[in-house]
Design a protein around this nucleic acid. Structure first.
Length: 796
DNA sequence: CAGTGAGCGAGCTTCCGCTTGACTT
C-alpha cells in the first residue's frame, strides 16, 4: 500500500498526475463536491446563525467510503483540489467527512497539470484556508436562500414548477430586455453612396463619407455628379497590425464553436469533455488565458521549426476579468506536436479549433498595409474614399482568424490598383442605396454566455447548464425565424442618366437565437417589480466583493448573510402575502365578424387568444385558440390573433374521410384517418388545397412503409422499424434497442420478446436501486427506457 | 401533434457549482 494518498477533483487529472508521481503515491478523484446542503427547506438555520446542514450526496457515498478507507491506510493525505473558492471548500469537506488527522493532511495546489508544477506543489504544502472556505459557504447559502425563497413566491403568484435564482433570473432578463429593445426599435434608413471607377481595366469602389437621410437629397447629390470630374486628391499609406486572440477559455471556446460550427454550448462542452478525457486537451472548464511555461516553450519550438522563427512570438496572456479565479490553464492541446487527432468528426473539428487558436496565440502579429485614396468631385465639397489593404506579413493569420458576432456590412477591403495623386478617374456609375439601421442582435446561447461572463455571473462549469435550465423551464426558446421583406430604393447614375428602382430585401431572419416566452416575460416582470435587488445586473458583482472580504478575513460569513437575509426575507413575506398575481392579459381589438372583444392572456396551458367575454350562457361562450410558438401576448396583432381561429380547417375529403389542416406542437400538420402528416414549410397551412394534401398523405404512406422492416404474426403490436440510428423494436408506444450488429432478417419473434422482457426489467431495477432518494423520481424513471426519450423530445 | 382556459385542493416543484456517467428512436 502506498504511503501517500492524493485527492484531486477530476479522474482524468488523477490518471495524469499518477504518472508524474512515483509508486509511493496513489492518486484518486473525489468527482467534485462530495457533499452539499440537505435537500429540504431546513438545510439552513435561518432563525439563528445560518449554520448549514450538509449531507453527503447519494451518488458520492461509494467514493466517500473508498476515500475513507484509503486515507486511513495512508501516511499522508494530500488534498489537491483546485485553487479557488469551490476547490478550497471541497478540500475542507473532504477533511471533515473523512475525519482527516490534521498532522497527516497537506493541502496543495497547482494551476497546470505538468510534472514540474506538481512536484513544486508537493514541496510547498499548506493548510486549508478557512476564510476561503467561508466565502464558499456564504456563496452556497446565499444561492440556496435566494433560489428556495423566490421560487415558491412564483409558484404562488405565477405558476407552479417555476424557478428563480441569482444566475438564471438575470440570464432570462437579458433575453427579455433584448427582445423588447428589438420590438421597440425604430428602423431608420439613409442613402449610402458608392461610386465605381474603371482603373486600368479593373474596377475600384469608393464610398462617400456621409449618408443622405432622404431620397431627395441623394438624388440631388447624383444630379450634381452629372458630368463632374473625379480625381485622386490624396493617397495615404498606413501600416497597421493585427494581433492574435488569446487561447480559449470556456466562454470564448463556446462562442467560437457557435460562430464557426454552429454548436450549442452544451454540445461544445461534451465534445471538449471527450477530448479532455482522451488526453488531447487541457481542462475545458476554465476562466484563465494563462499557458504553462512548458506549453509556451513547446509552441515556440513547434512554430519555429514548422513556420520559421519570424512566426514565433512567445506571449503570456493575463486575464482581465475580475471574477476569474484562474485555477486552471487556458484550454490548449496537451501536445503541440498533435496537429491532428483520432476521433469523431466533431471531436476533430473542435480539436482543430482549439489547436489553431492556441498556436496562433503564440505567433507573430500580422502586418497590414492600408491604402486610403481620397477622391475629389468637381463642384462638390464632399469626397469619396477608396480603401485597400495589403497583407505584408501573415503572421498568425497563417493558421487562425477569430470571427465576430456582428456580421455587419461587408467592407471587404481589397487591394487597390496602382494610383497616383492628381490622376483623373473614369466613372462607371454611382449608386445611392437605401440602407436601414439594425437593432442589437438577439442572443445566441454563446453570446449570452459572453454577456453573463462580462457581468461576472455564473462560472465556466455552469454556463451550459444555466442555458439549458432557462430553456427547460420554458422561459426562453431557441428558434429560427423567417425573415420579413421590405422595400428599399436604389438610384443609379450611369452615363449621366439617373435611374430609380424599387427593390426588396429580407431582414430580421434568425437562426438558433434565444427568444423569451410569455412565461419568461411574466416572471421577469414580476421579479423586477418586487425583487429589484436580485434582478440588478450588478447584484452578483456586489455579493462577490463581499465574498472577497470574507476570503480576506475582513468579514464574517454568517454576518454577511444575516445582513442580506433580513431585508430580503421581509420582501419575500410581503410579496407572498400582498402582491397581485402577474399575468399578461391584454385587449387587442374587436372581432369584425361578431363585434366581440378579442383578448390575449396566459392560462394553464400557455398563452391563448379569446373572442368574447366569459358568460354562463352556453351559446355565448367565448372561443379560444392557443398562440403559436414565437407569438407573444405582448406583441401579437389583432390580425394574427384572428388567424388563429381559422384553424383547424377542413381541406376536403379523401377516401371518404375528411382531411383537416391545423397547427400542433411540432408545427403545421394534416390530419387524415387519425394520422398526422407534417406540412412542409414551403406550403401554407391556411391555403393548402386538397390535391396537394393528397400528395403529402401518399408520400407519408410510402415513407411509413419504408420505415416498417418486419412484422410478426404472433403479435401485431411488435414491429421492427427503421429509425434515425438504424433498426429498432417498437411495441405499442414503447421502443427497444436491438443488440449491436443484429441482422434484421434473422430476427424471430422469440428473440424479440426476449429482448423486450430483458430490457424492461433490469433497466427499472437499476434506476430504482441507484436513486433511492425521492420515491417519486424512481417512479418516473421506471417507465420503459424509450418512453423517457419520447418525453424528452416532446419537451424540446 | 387536443381546440382546453371555472374553481378547489393535495402534493409536488426550486438554487449554484464542482465532477462524470448512463443514455440515446
Amino acid at each position: 500500500m502506498s504511503k501517500n494518498l492524493v485527492i484531486v477533483e477530476s479522474p482524468a487529472k488523477a490518471k495524469t498526475i499518477e504518472k508524474f508521481l512515483g509508486s509511493d503515491y496513489t492518486v484518486k478523484s473525489c468527482f467534485g463536491h462530495i457533499r452539499d446542503l440537505a435537500k429540504g427547506d431546513d438545510a439552513i438555520n435561518v432563525k439563528g446563525d445560518f449554520s448549514p446542514n450538509y449531507e453527503v450526496s447519494e451518488d458520492k457515498k461509494a467514493i466517500v467510503a473508498e476515500l475513507k478507507k484509503l486515507s486511513k491506510e495512508a501516511d499522508v493525505v494530500w488534498l489537491a483540489s483546485d485553487e479557488d473558492r469551490e476547490g478550497e471548500a471541497i478540500s475542507w469537506h473532504l477533511s471533515e467527512v473523512l475525519k482527516l488527522d490534521e498532522k497527516k493532511t497537506r493541502r496543495i495546489v497547482f494551476h497546470e497539470i505538468t510534472k514540474p508544477a506538481i512536484l513544486k506543489a508537493i514541496e510547498n504544502p499548506r493548510g486549508i484556508d478557512k476564510n476561503l472556505v467561508d466565502a464558499q459557504q456564504a456563496r452556497r447559502v446565499l444561492d440556496r436562500l435566494v433560489g428556495f425563497e423566490l421560487s415558491p413566491v412564483l409558484w404562488k403568484k405565477v405558476k407552479s414548477n417555476l424557478s428563480a435564482g441569482r444566475v438564471q433570473s438575470v440570464a432570462v432578463r437579458l433575453i427579455v430586455d433584448r427582445e423588447r429593445e428589438i420590438n421597440q426599435f425604430n428602423y431608420n434608413s439613409a442613402f449610402r453612396i458608392v461610386a465605381r471607377f474603371a482603373v486600368g481595366g479593373k474596377q475600384m469602389e469608393a464610398e462617400l463619407g456621409k449618408r443622405f437621410e432622404t431620397e431627395a437629397e441623394a438624388k440631388a447629390f447624383l444630379e450634381n455628379c452629372k458630368g463632374a470630374d473625379f480625381s485622386i486628391k490624396t493617397l495615404e499609406v498606413k501600416p497597421s497590425e493585427k494581433s492574435p486572440a488569446p487561447p480559449f477559455t470556456t466562454s470564448t471556446l463556446q462562442q467560437e464553436a457557435s460562430r464557426k460550427m454552429g454548436y450549442g454550448v452544451s454540445v461544445t462542452m461534451s465534445i471538449a469533455q471527450k477530448l479532455y478525457e482522451n488526453g488531447f486537451i487541457t481542462y475545458m472548464r476554465t476562466d484563465s488565458v494563462n499557458l504553462s511555461e512548458m506549453a509556451i516553450a513547446s509552441a515556440a519550438s513547434y512554430i519555429t521549426s514548422n513556420f520559421g522563427a519570424q512566426y514565433s512570438r512567445p506571449m503570456r496572456y493575463t486575464t482581465k476579468n475580475d471574477s476569474a479565479q484562474e485555477a486552471h490553464e487556458a484550454i490548449r492541446p496537451t501536445y503541440f506536436e498533435n496537429v491532428e487527432i483520432d476521433g469523431t468528426p466533431q471531436e476533430k473539428k473542435l480539436y482543430d479549433l482549439i489547436y489553431k487558436r492556441a498556436i496562433a496565440s503564440q505567433m507573430a502579429k500580422a502586418q497590414i498595409e492600408k491604402t486610403i485614396a481620397n477622391i475629389s468631385i468637381s463642384g462638390i465639397p464632399e469626397q469619396l474614399v477608396a480603401t485597400g489593404e495589403v497583407l505584408k506579413f501573415d503572421g498568425f493569420l497563417k493558421v487562425y482568424l477569430e470571427s465576430t458576432d456582428d456580421d455587419q456590412e461587408d467592407d471587404t477591403s481589397k487591394m487597390l490598383p496602382p494610383l497616383s495623386v492628381g490622376e483623373k478617374l473614369v466613372l462607371n456609375q454611382i449608386q445611392a442605396t437605401e440602407k436601414f439601421t439594425r437593432p442589437a442582435p438577439r442572443y445566441t446561447e454563446a453570446s449570452l454566455v459572453k454577456r453573463l461572463e462580462e457581468l461576472g455571473i455564473g462560472r465556466p462549469s455552469t454556463y451550459a447548464p444555466t442555458i439549458s435550465t432557462i430553456q427547460k423551464r420554458g422561459y426562453v426558446l431557441k428558434e429560427d425565424r423567417e425573415g420579413k421583406e421590405r422595400n428599399f430604393v436604389q438610384l443609379t447614375l450611369e452615363k449621366d442618366e439617373i435611374a430609380r428602382v424599387d427593390r426588396t430585401e429580407k431582414f430580421a431572419s434568425e437562426k438558433s437565437k434565444l427568444f423569451p416566452s410569455d412565461i419568461g416575460i411574466i416572471v421577469t416582470d414580476f421579479l423586477s417589480k418586487h425583487f429589484e435587488q436580485i434582478m440588478d445586473f450588478g447584484f452578483t458583482a456586489s455579493v462577490e466583493s463581499e465574498f472577497d472580504k470574507i476570503a480576506r478575513g475582513q468579514l464574517v460569513w454568517n454576518k454577511m448573510i444575516e445582513k442580506f437575509y433580513g431585508p430580503f426575507h421581509a420582501i419575500v413575506t410581503n410579496t407572498s402575502e400582498n402582491a397581485e398575481r402577474q399575468n399578461a392579459e391584454r385587449t387587442i381589438g374587436v372581432d369584425p365578424e361578431t363585434g366581440k372583444t378579442v383578448y390575449v392572456k396566459v392560462g394553464r396551458y400557455g398563452p391563448f387568444a379569446q373572442i368574447g367575454d366569459n358568460s354562463d350562457d352556453e351559446a355565448l361562450k367565448p372561443r379560444y385558440a392557443s398562440l403559436r410558438t414565437g407569438q407573444l401576448t405582448e406583441t401579437i396583432t389583432l390580425e394574427e390573433a384572428l388567424d388563429l381561429f381559422k384553424l383547424p380547417r377542413v381541406v376536403g375529403e379523401f377516401e371518404t374521410k375528411p382531411v383537416k389542416a391545423a397547427i400542433g406542437r411540432f408545427g403545421p400538420y394534416l390530419m387524415h384517418d387519425s394520422k398526422f402528416i407534417s406540412i412542409p414549410k414551403t406550403d401554407d397551412v391556411f391555403a393548402i388545397d386538397l390535391p396537394r394534401s393528397i400528395e403529402l398523405i401518399e408520400a407519408k404512406r410510402i415513407s411509413d412503409a419504408n420505415k416498417l422492416l418486419k412484422t410478426f404474426a404472433e403479435d401485431e403490436e411488435v414491429k421492427i422499424l427503421n429509425g434515425r440510428w438504424g433498426p429498432y423494436i417498437g411495441k405499442g408506444r414503447d421502443n427497444y434497442r436491438l443488440p449491436k450488429g443484429q441482422n434484421v432478417d434473422e430476427l424471430t419473434y422469440e428473440m424479440v420478446s426476449k429482448i423486450i422482457a430483458a430490457e424492461a426489467k433490469p433497466a427499472s431495477k437499476k434506476t430504482a436501486a441507484k436513486t433511492a432518494v425521492p420515491a417519486k423520481k424512481v417512479a418516473a424513471k421506471k417507465k420503459a427506457p424509450a418512453k423517457k426519450a419520447a418525453v424528452k423530445k416532446a419537451k424540446k
